[in-house]
């Protein structure tokens, strides 16, 4: 389905929907607020060539439980990405297409080897608590350079909702330059591995990664769930941490 009528010069965001994907509509809404046109398409229809990756300007992989998290969160979707769309993806990357994967989308990008990239092994495994966790977190953008982060002037706040979000890497030093978001505590200091500020026990409080180009971004928390002040559980107490700027930056990167 294509959401809304196209305007001239409006970038198009492709949002594939695998069996079990469920945050696609919120992601589409967040990009629509940022001025993009969105196409949500079942994976089977994408596989049959109903549209091609390169006909769009941004690829966005939403959250959910693709394939029911069978064999590990994001693994089978990651396999689809490499085995069905490997060539298209190569072309998209070579054309500098911004790609974002959120939660299950992030897990799939890691499983597909696109993040952190460069052949560095990484995995998103079961939370340290052993439980699915749904709670709001505070995120500090950077330090890795990325067009997705341009214009994010301070920390953002948004919910996590996952059971397998603990980043583990073979070499923590080597991913340092890939860090796109870190968990903070509620005073703005580093979460320093403390639960619940770092909700899953990720190494180095890492909540999100970019590849070496900065164009491919993945993160466990859900910025698409804080694009309107109405969504903020602290509404009536404070007004900050809106995550809308992330989607605006992505759209700006392909319209500038």
């Amino acid at each position: 389905m294509s959401d809304g009528a196209a305007r001239a010069g409006q970038p198009s965001v492709l949002i594939p929907v695998a069996p079990g994907t469920n945050r696609n509509q919120e992601l589409a809404d967040a990009f629509a607020r940022a001025g993009a046109r969105t196409t949500q398409i079942p994976l089977a229809a994408l596989r049959q060539g109903e549209t091609k990756l390169v006909d769009h300007q941004i690829l966005a992989l939403p959250g959910g439980f693709s394939y029911g998290d069978a064999l590990g969160a994001g693994r089978l979707l990651g396999l689809d990405i490499t085995s069905w769309f490997g060539d298209q993806l190569q072309e998209a990357v070579s054309r500098h297409m911004p790609i974002i994967g959120i939660c299950n989308g992030f897990q799939a990008l890691v499983a597909a080897g696109l993040l952190p990239g460069g052949g560095q092994p990484a995995a998103l495994v079961a939370n340290e608590s052993g439980r699915f966790e749904c709670r709001w977190v505070t995120l500090e953008p950077g330090p890795a350079p990325s067009p997705w982060l341009d214009g994010l002037t301070g920390p953002i706040r948004c919910p996590v909702a996952h059971g397998e979000g603990r980043l583990t890497v073979a070499d923590p030093v080597a991913v340092e330059g890939h860090v796109a978001f870190r968990y903070l505590d509620d005073t703005g200091g580093p979460a320093a591995g403390r639960y619940p500020h770092n909700p899953n026990g990720s190494v180095g409080d890492v909540a999100g990664l970019v590849d070496t180009t900065g164009l491919v971004l993945g993160l466990m928390p859900h910025p698409e769930d804080h694009v309107d002040p109405r969504q903020d559980p602290q509404r009536g107490r404070r007004h900050d941490g809106l995550a809308r700027g992330l989607f605006e930056a992505g759209v700006r990167a392909v319209t500038a």
Binding site: Q25, E26, D29, F132, C134, A161, D186, D225, P233, R235
Partner: peptide, 22 residues
Amino acid sequence: VRTFDHEVLGGTVIRPYGGVAG
């Protein structure tokens, strides 16, 4: 309650647990 996703669909305004520290 935190093992249940109460945020998905993006429409939640008052959650089962709230306040300064949730």
